[in-house]
């Protein structure tokens, strides 16, 4: 009997120790999650329905006025529809040009073709060197060296690509693509390396060429990873700054605004009175982004099942 009690007591103690160990591991991170995710996001929703009384330095309930103001501003401030358009152009460009190119480059690296290791370093370089540094060198190059090149060949004075309104947005878009391959290429080539050799060899025995191998074997096999990037990119429509803050600070032209750039640059200069409107703006964006992103994910998963 005594032995049973002792064993039972030992088991209870062991369970208690395990539980204490478990709590010590997850306790602080859970608290962090509650404060910095749950409370912050709930507060963001609450803030969207408040206004700031600067005389008494307090927030008060303001109903749906901020939300209404967001919709009013979309019809009265031309830069907001332009920001939506630019954000969509950026995503479409990345989707139609960036992702296919990243897959093709990854395939080259996966096949360990000539100098693939070196190309991997170059593709990853913009992720290593600060985005700010890269964007600034690019900006100074396009605004200084390229005009002098043009002058040398044509004899006519030329402006920088980022100074001219007609070339500015295209140049920023090109830069976003050019500097954005790194992570995608690492992920795609990493996933490709998990494809069974026997699958590739079976295709080769059937006489397929490299292009067919990429399209009919590799792409379907890595489709879950492609789906992830398409979905992440889609939710990025609402937060992508397109490097505008690195190129222009808070002085980007309204015509080039993206939603992400507007949100971030407004937040850096916001006082207590501006926070509720910005929260309302974020809330409206989330209300659009969340169902659209989840819907796209569902549709892509369905498409993935067909492969």
């Amino acid at each position: 009997m005594d032995a049973t009690i002792k064993r039972g007591g030992g088991y209870a103690k062991q369970r208690r120790n395990k539980l204490l160990f478990y709590i010590s591991l997850v306790g602080l991170p859970s608290l962090q999650f509650v404060i910095f995710y749950i409370i912050v996001n709930f507060n963001s929703i609450a803030l969207a329905f408040q206004s700031y009384d600067s005389d008494n330095a307090v927030y008060f309930f303001y109903g749906f006025e901020n939300i209404k103001q967001v919709f009013v501003n979309f019809s009265t401030q031309s830069f907001l529809p332009a920001a939506v358009k630019n954000s969509l152009i950026c995503y479409s460009f990345t989707l139609l040009v960036g992702i296919p190119l990243a897959i093709i480059f990854s395939y080259y690296i996966y096949k360990k073709s000539f100098f693939s290791g070196g190309f991997k370093v170059f593709l990853f370089m913009p992720q290593i060197v600060s985005a700010l540094v890269f964007a600034l060198i690019f900006r100074f190059f396009t605004d200084n060296a390229i005009p002098q090149f043009v002058e040398m060949f044509t004899g006519e004075e030329a402006d920088g690509l980022l100074s001219l309104p007609e070339t500015r947005f295209g140049t920023v878009l090109f830069y976003t693509l050019w500097a954005g391959f790194g992570t995608q290429v690492l992920m795609y080539s990493g996933t490709m390396s998990g494809i069974s050799d026997s699958v590739i060899e079976a295709g080769q025995l059937d006489g397929i060429n490299s292009f067919q191998e990429l399209i009919y074997i590799v792409v379907p096999m890595i489709f879950p990873t492609i789906t992830t990037f398409i979905v992440v990119g889609f939710s990025g429509i609402f937060i992508n700054q397109m490097n505008l803050y690195a190129f222009f600070g808070t002085k980007a032209e309204y015509a080039d605004y993206t939603l992400g750039y507007y949100m971030y640059s407004a937040a850096t200069e916001a006082g207590p009175a501006e926070l509720p409107y910005l929260s309302a703006f974020g809330l409206v964006m989330t209300l659009f982004a969340a169902p659209l992103t989840l819907g796209l994910r569902w549709a892509l998963n369905k498409l993935g099942e067909k492969f």
Binding site: S44, L259, M263, L275, G282, L283, T286, A289, A290, T293
Partner: peptide
Amino acid sequence: ILPVVGAYPS
């Protein structure tokens, strides 16, 4: 999966 946009002010 769930995108949360613009929580900076909060």
